[in-house]
């Protein structure tokens, strides 16, 4: 479980988060949508302790963020942003191995190597181990980054949860990769102990994959729940300023059309 209770964050006079309360459960894909400037990225940063909220509490399970050491948190919680720029040429395996940094100092142990290998295999990048990361395309790089963040939290610990926070990691990818990654993330959720909270831009993508959807607007939670409940034409219009036609498929799928 990952909860944020009454979170507020302001910078200068802009109130980026205004009393946001959210709950993200294990085994479910929770996605956050909202217009530009709604506070989506700020929410990820506050939840991941990159930013300190002026008020409110973030809890990983029942433990407030203040009770987590950097290392313990980094061992259980991974974060992926939309565009990770690597400053120097590294091999792909070196990048993935960084995900294990919270787990070892000096030389990686056998568990670290295995976690990297399995995560790389899962995202189909195992063969690229010796390649220069900077020679990869945008989609390929993001696959490596997914492998890195999953390597960070690859192993389940009985009785404990793992958390994956995604800050628009699909934005620069084409549609095939977007579907591919979300399918793989969904598959990982089957383990049951993984809490995934992600920000996405594409409403239809969110509708297609989310178990739980949060609409953020002007720093507040506008709606929260199953996609079918949340994605009403009125709500979407109020949040995004453009009215969709909502099509409901037979299997409960939803499609938004904008004209």
């Amino acid at each position: 479980m990952l909860t944020g209770t009454d979170l507020s964050f302001s910078i200068e006079h802009a109130r980026l988060l205004d009393g946001v309360s959210v709950t993200f459960e294990p085994g479910k894909l929770s996605l956050v949508i909202g217009p530009n400037g709604a506070g989506k990225s700020t929410l990820v940063k506050v939840l991941s302790r990159q930013l300190e909220p002026q008020s409110g509490v973030v809890r990983y399970d029942d433990r407030p963020l203040a009770g987590w050491s950097e290392r313990d948190l980094a061992r259980a919680r991974a974060v992926l942003s939309q565009n990770v720029e690597l400053a120097f040429p590294l091999r792909v395996w070196e990048v993935v191995l960084m995900g294990r940094y919270p787990h070892f100092t000096g030389a990686p142990g056998a568990a670290d190597e295995r976690a990297c290998e399995e995560a790389m295999r899962y995202f189909d990048v195992l063969d690229w181990g010796a390649r220069n990361y900077l020679t990869l395309s945008g989609g390929e790089r993001q696959r490596v980054q997914f492998a890195r963040v999953m390597a960070q939290i690859w192993d389940s610990t009985p009785g404990a949860h793992r958390w994956l926070l995604l800050d628009e990691p699909l934005t620069f990818l084409d549609i095939r990769y977007q579907f591919d990654f979300l399918r793989r993330i969904r598959e990982l959720l089957n383990a049951g102990d993984l809490v995934v909270m992600g920000v996405v831009h594409d409403l239809n993508l969110a509708a297609r994959f989310a178990d739980h959807l949060v609409i953020l607007s002007h720093g507040r939670v506008m709606a929260s729940g199953a996609p079918a409940e949340v994605l009403q034409a009125d709500t979407v219009e109020a949040a995004f300023g453009i009215r969709p036609t909502v099509q409901r498929g037979e299997a409960g799928g939803i499609h938004l059309l904008f004209e």
């Binding site: 302790r49 974060v79 942003s81």
Partner: peptide, 18 residues
């Protein structure tokens, strides 16, 4: 090792516990 993590950027290094 933390300097290696910094190659990913300051935020990402922070997420790795640096």
């Amino acid at each position: 090792q933390p300097l290696n993590a910094l190659m990913l950027g300051e935020e990402e290094a922070g997420y790795l516990g640096v």
